[in-house]
Design a protein around this nucleic acid. Structure first.
Lengths: 346, 346
DNA sequence: TTGTAAATGAGACACGTGCCTCAAAACAAG
DNA sequence: CTTGTTTTGAGGCACGTGTCTCATTTACAA
């Protein structure tokens, strides 16, 4: 029974001894204080490597009685998807409280980049450790994010993507999401030909555009017998939605599939059930909400493309904390998956 | 700008003051030492509620310089699924090291319940904090798990389910997984009728049985035009697999779909490609591995039903830690999802 | 009332790190 | 060499909790 010796982790004291300096100097190096000769810095750093020293974060946070205060800047509009997110934020707070993390939701006007950037400008490191920002991409917001980071507040685009943020955001690959919707529609539809209605809230947003791109890619490539119609934009107004949806249905008697791209499926789907209650049409929507779950169960939806909102929230928190602590986060854990929900795996 | 006051969390000192006792007594109550009058215990407990006191785990662990040592008891057989798990265990170790958690893999002979229970009997709280056990259900193993817990070692069934463990295990709902496979097969197959071949490693295991049950449920209910054949058991032997698969193909010329139920898809799928390379047959397998990913990309598989191995591992670690710390874990986070992978959302 | 056991309190030290002060040592420039 | 500056060391206190010891108080039975 070869039980490995349980070597305790080296401490700053061990470090000091190994580097032949005092604990005070070790502290100076570890916390980047100035007034240390380069040679000494090097000596300490190589001792760190040699011993495999990692600072004990709990002890450090205890000593400076540090706590993390994160803000989620979310759009005002209260659709079910956002409700889920808010719910998961408070849920996450309970489990992250052991790490002294607290979270707060701040509602922003997603259509007013100026007010968003003004709000972000008010945040300072003393009161807020980090922000997760869900807002459409605009130059103002991007600048505000950069300035936040310079000021020492961690900032992270959340769900809504921002160009040039590349790896540095939390959310799904929307192109893959659209492609997945197309694949499912294509394979679920048995008709030899027909049209597919695509409903969006607005095609202005980067997310919608990417979804549509991925959708069209797959449609053109693999299902040329199906005709994807131009995206209908509801602008979140139900009268308008009703009008354009019923017009489209009238003008295209061969509709065999419907792709609801927006994160709020309730409106369009309810209208569809009013206008065309029969329907052997294949229907796919986005995001898990109480409504889409119900629709899946009752067979009013055939599939849902979703991102796990709980995971989104926890991932954002972990990554904000990672930025603050200057630690890497685990990529494989933080990747948000494009989930497919059927009646059987809700 | 209503900045909330950042009230620091109450400490044991505050508790003592509030309860009108000394810190020593607070400690006696908090850590369940005896020799405290019931009345005093009550007084402290109500003070805890009143103040909303939660002990600072990092400080506590620092004080007793506690660290967690978890063992993953995994089958010997080295299929790709297990390799993924092992990989994710070492990956998880890096991110959990900040919590002073270390993990170790111990290989067990999954077909020898006696040796498994003998191994588990050797574990004691001094060297091992908790074990995640992946082993088929047997009375011996179940007993060994119970005895572990009595001895103060956290124990958690892992991936392989055990009856009566109910909520207390880490893994997917295999019935739902089977049902999901059936739904996808049913909807992907456009033929008006035909047979479906079902390949398993063995139907002895609880997991296989549950998958088959869920599969048949959906098949019978929603796709009566398809005929699911009896499960073929490969016993992990490739000669046998080859024989029974080709026989089945010969005897059923109308096969339109294949469901590979085992966690190792490579064997059966390779054989299929040898025996029947053309194939417009719809094929679905389990578990994400380098092999199944490749097969999805090349179109040799139409879908994969998977459980996120990284999530499985991290969930097990969190839950073991939860048991040790006597804290609740977040159900919504620990639920392992039945994932559907297509070419587009790998 | 006394004796004894049970219950509680007071205090110290430890865990690993941050942060501060003050003195000592090393170094540079004149 | 002296003077002034930079670099380093020694040491202490703090963070919140665990775990001792020893003294003191309280409760209860004789």
């Amino acid at each position: 029974m070869p039980t490995q010796k349980q070597m305790p982790r080296p401490t700053t004291k061990d470090l000091a001894k190994a580097a032949g300096v005092s604990r005070a100097t070790v502290d100076r190096v570890l916390n980047g204080r100035e007034g240390v000769k380069q040679k000494t810095v090097d000596r300490v750093n190589s001792a760190i490597k040699e011993l495999g020293f990692v600072r004990n974060l709990s002890a450090a946070n205890l000593a400076r009685s540090k706590s993390y205060r994160f803000v989620f800047a979310l759009p005002k509009s209260g659709d079910q998807f956002l409700e889920q997110i808010v719910r998961h934020i408070s849920e996450a707070e309970t489990i992250f409280s052991v790490d002294h993390i607290s979270c707060e939701v701040h509602h922003i006007d997603e259509n007013d980049p100026h007010s968003i950037s003004a709000y972000l400008a008010t945040l300072n490191p003393d009161s807020v450790t980090g922000v997760a920002i869900m807002a459409p991409e605009t130059p103002q917001v991007r600048d505000a994010i950069n300035r936040l980071q310079e000021r020492g507040v961690a900032a992270l685009p959340f769900i809504s993507n921002q160009t040039m943020m590349d790896e540095n955001w939390v959310g799904i690959d929307n192109r893959a999401a659209g492609a997945t919707a197309a694949t499912l529609l294509g394979r679920f539809i048995h008709a030899p030909s027909g049209a597919i209605m695509v409903v969006a809230e607005s095609m202005q947003s980067r997310d919608s555009m990417e979804r549509r791109l991925g959708f069209d890619d797959v449609m053109n490539m693999h299902f040329p017998h199906l005709r994807a119609l131009p995206s209908l934009e509801t602008y979140g107004v139900s009268e308008r939605a009703k009008a354009i949806i019923s017009t489209t249905l009238q003008n295209n008697s061969d509709i065999v599939g419907i792709y609801i791209m927006s994160s709020e499926a309730r409106g369009p789907l309810t209208i569809l059930q009013d206008v065309a209650p029969d329907s052997s049409v294949v229907k796919i929507a986005h995001e898990r909400t109480p409504f889409t779950e119900g629709a899946l169960r009752f067979g009013n939806l055939d599939a849902v493309i979703a991102q796990d909102t709980g995971h989104l929230v926890r991932s954002a928190i972990r990554r904000l904390k990672g930025i603050v602590d200057q630690r890497e986060t685990l990529k494989s854990q933080e990747k948000i998956r494009v989930e497919i929900l059927l009646k059987t795996n809700i």
